[in-house]
Design a binder for these strands. Structure first.
Length: 121
DNA sequence: CATTTGACATCTT
DNA sequence: TAAGATGCCAAAT
């Protein structure tokens, strides 16, 4: 069966990766894009999530920017507070700057079976 | 049908 | 270390 490379297929791939993110962990747009097969194309991830309905089964709130913060932009007024609340419910901790420790909550496809995120120095 | 803006990331100054 | 500018694809107007 032919795999259509239309926007639907591209978005579908991104949703599949985001859906794989376990609770209590987060991923950056760039990471999701890389896992989806589109490295350096983090923007498409954001666009895909934007086209995603709020009632969707995709944990879009587990996707944050590379700064460890929330980037809903003006596309969703107040959405930053909503996403932050959802992440806090997952057990994440935000700084006074509204940023979280990516080094600590960044999810790995291996489920962290290799080593702890605390850099085994 | 063409132009503009947009849930970001990375490089350079 | 921080701030500004660039590149990418897709959806909206």
């Amino acid at each position: 069966m032919g795999i259509r490379r239309d926007s639907e297929g591209t978005h579908n791939r991104i949703f599949a990766v985001v859906r794989r993110i376990p609770s209590g962990h987060v991923l950056t747009y760039g990471d999701v894009a890389a896992l989806a097969g589109m490295p350096e194309h983090a923007r498409l991830v954001g666009y895909a999530l934007h086209a995603l309905p709020q009632h969707s089964a995709v944990p879009w709130h587990r996707v944050i920017n590379h700064k460890g913060g929330i980037s809903t932009g003006r596309a969703w007024p107040g959405g930053e507070l909503v996403q932050r609340s959802l992440l806090e419910a997952e057990g994440l901790h935000f700084d006074a700057n509204g940023r979280t420790s990516l080094k600590r909550y960044r999810w790995k496809p291996d489920d962290g079976a290799a080593d702890a995120p605390g850099t085994p120095d």
